[in-house]
Design a protein around this nucleic acid. Structure first.
Lengths: 345, 345
DNA sequence: GTGAAAGCGCTAACAC
DNA sequence: GTGTTAGCGCTTTCAC
């Protein structure tokens, strides 16, 4: 393996000089000397050992991204945005799937510390399990103290800079849209209870109801878990409701759930949107692929990722970044929503 | 930052002894001494610097996974399998999105080399652009010579161990299924021409036709590009075919294309599967979510990833691994296929 | 403008 | 069983 030593030898200079050229230090080096070093490096097909460099500089040009599951299109899209900017800036992106398990999350943070990762991005929301936020905060403090740039891309228990989609406003606006269409009985399929984002969307839903002068019917709060299976399961209880209470619209806490809801309704033979409108949250690519196409709250996830990584870079350059910044959302109306009462019943 | 030096000091031993305990070397250490070191490490919340360790051992417990796009569910699923096993074995997984561009791929390989990555997994098929395979092979040789374990998870130009789905057999079997249903005019939507896997599936399609005594109608070879948009575009030409030539079944080279095909057919008002059957390749999660659900060739991608990573670990342990191993596929019949002639025309 | 040398944290000979 | 020491490849004072 060729090291800077052979480059220096071939160029006939000291390794110090070679290093100055190679590492693009702003130390003055005679342009002819610089030329010779560059030539030698090229001839030897030399590139610096990133490990050795990281050892000196105490950080490694690596970035950890903490996701629930990289298979989930929500996270996949964010990851892509992060990786794009990371790659443009010479950083390596490390995937950390936690399955939302505190143990896995903590273990990964430790490993990322061992590798002197330059930055860590929490792509998803925090887990609000008892005792966990404190433990996590402690671990993260160890990291930030060392100069690791840490940010979150969602509402989180962590007190680090955060760039987050407007989950509350998005849910509220979606309910506004539904009430404007004439819906009065709007069900909401929740996300996992210990998942902060899910609760914020629920708050937005309730705010939307209040704005329209509606009151919350607990029977229309259907438990879900952000999965398709959960959505499918959630609608099973609907036929047992008295006709007068049945929802004319179902708002799912995320798109995957909404897809499950649509599958469940198909099984019940309740046509969408004729019998019941369905909408989701996220605007994943599938939202356009399903039949009927899904009305949803759009978050530009790739942009969220790109911006997140830019913030990490800013922190590493010691620039000040705002504690909380809100990424705009928008409502995308598609075919799965319509005014109520199109159905015979 | 606490290093092995402070641990040794606190335990009252030399750093060599401390290292022997910490690094789990099988060197004999007195159990009482070992105990003291472990205690000291725990008290100081010490964990070894992975960079320093990698510097000595010349490789870093990091693994690069080369994908076209981590947003593509095909790659996402493989990644997850790889990451699972990697994590279980203390390896970090680095995402490398290439967008199938040789330049990006080569650049990433260089970076992975700089970081002394222990292994590299090519998740997708090789690019068969003129001159590229040679360049890539050269770069990979540099890596394998250094002890990097390199494998591919698809048909590839590279001569490294490969664990790959049976793309040929899968396509052939799907055509068998369609001909058994009674279809005689089966269209095929191709993938990108420079993508090896796409061509192998095309070969399988042709083999299936021959087996059924059918000949290839060039008009039924529709150009696609593995994307939904490509699939949608591909069917646009169909109405211009004389009635007697119109396909009763459309086999798309991958699931995303099949989804696009279904969207395109919806626009044409050709009901699936009544007017025309549709099937895909891959069995992505969406295949079950669309309406009608998609008949497709199933590859267990997560298992492919898991196994791939296990192979990398085997290579690193100097075990011999087979040059080529084929992962089984299966046909999943769902609602998008039916016998032909259910349509009025 | 250039070079000598210390040291980042660790492992692995090599002594004792 | 334990300790001393030489690097791994790089950056960075500090001399010159």
């Amino acid at each position: 393996m060729t090291s800077i030593v052979q480059v220096a030898e071939l160029a006939g200079v000291s390794i110090a000089t070679a290093s100055r050229v190679i590492s693009k230090s702003n130390y003055p080096v005679n342009s002819r000397t610089r030329e010779r070093v560059l030539e030698a490096a090229a001839k030897l097909n030399y590139t610096p050992n990133a490990l050795a460099r990281g050892m000196k500089t105490q950080h490694s040009n690596m970035l950890g991204i903490i996701v629930g599951d990289n298979t989930d299109p929500y996270y996949a899209e964010i990851m892509r945005g992060v990786e794009d900017v990371a790659n443009e800036n010479g950083y390596l992106t490390i995937v950390c799937n936690t399955d939302r398990q505190p143990v896995k999350e903590l273990k990964y943070l430790q490993t990322l510390r061992d590798f002197r990762t330059s930055g860590i991005i929490f792509a998803g929301g925090g887990l609000s399990e008892p005792g966990y936020p404190e433990k996590l905060a402690e671990k993260v403090r160890e990291l930030t103290e060392r100069g690791t740039a840490v940010i979150t891309l969602s509402q989180h228990t962590l007190h680090v800079p955060s760039y987050q989609p407007d989950n509350f406003g998005g849910a509220r606006q979606m309910v506004n849209k539904l009430t404007a269409l004439g819906h009065r009985r709007i069900a909401f399929v929740t996300g996992p209870a210990n998942f902060i984002v899910a609760n914020i969307r629920l708050q937005g839903y309730m705010a939307g109801l209040i704005e329209a002068g509606l009151s919350l019917n607990p029977n229309l709060l259907l438990p879900g878990d952000f999965s398709m299976a959960g959505g499918e399961q959630a609608v099973r209880s609907l036929p047992y409701l008295p006709l007068s209470e049945r929802p004319t619209a179902i708002f799912a806490a995320n798109d995957e759930t909404a897809l499950g809801v649509m599958m469940g309704l198909r099984r019940l033979d309740w046509p969408v949107p004729q019998a019941v409108s369905v909408c989701g949250f996220g605007d994943l690519p599938v939202a356009q692929a399903v039949n009927p196409t899904l009305t949803t709250v759009r978050i530009d996830l790739r942009e969220l990722g790109r911006n997140g990584m830019l913030k990490v870079l800013a922190i590493l350059k010691n620039e000040t970044v705002p504690t909380i910044e809100i990424a705009p959302i928008s409502i995308v109306e598609r075919a799965s929503t319509a005014p109520p009462g199109l159905s015979p019943d």
